[in-house]
Amino acid sequence: MKFGMVIDTKRCFGCRACVAACKTENIVQPGNHWNFVLEYEQGKYPNVSRIFTPMNCMHCENPPCMKACPEKAISKNEHGVVMIDYDKCKGRKYCIAACPYGVIHFIDRGKAFYPDGQKIPYETLPIEAKHPLHRKKPGITEKCTLCWHRIEKAIKEGKKPGSDYDTSPACIKVCPANARYFGDLDDPDNEVSRLIAKKRAIQLNKEYGTRPQVFYIV
């Protein structure tokens, strides 16, 4: 199984539910966004349009971040998911420079959600109550993991990843516009494969040769 996503920008109306869902699911501190939505206007009054483009890690087949990392802290697993090893990462930031999509962030220091620094229980869970992919610390980089913690659990439990809310990344089934899809790109019958074919979904910045596993309907 090679996991990928399809994002339908014709459906997306910029609510940012995916942004919020990712942040809370992955305890992403203020200022960093594993998932964000670009918003811009085109045209002149009254012929104006507004475009929303959600972006997260593309889980490239040819990831420049993985190649750039001097510590070999980034790897791509058997299901195509690109992840940072927080123990190996030394915060060298080559990955941030290499990524053409700007989806990797540096954790310069721990920041509490509330500006006066007071951490809430959600932020102070003991380490054994946090999945390894959420054990982040200052001085390392972080990015979207395709919610591998949820996918891995699904596979372990014999469930089909992407088949429902909890076996998909947190940003997928929460979308009010039904604009986000997740599934097995190796399976031609899978929803994502069919959508890519039927709606001629494209990859962004193809010229960099990164071969993203995230496709866009535009």
Binding site: C15, R16, A17, V19, A20, A21, T24, F113, I120, P121, Y122, Y165, K173, V174, C175, P176, N178
Partner: peptide, 15 residues
């Protein structure tokens, strides 16, 4: 199953 960012952030409202 859909939610908006407000519903998702409800835990911050409580804490």
């Amino acid at each position: 199953g859909h939610l908006c960012p407000k519903g998702i952030s409800g835990l911050f409202d409580t804490y």
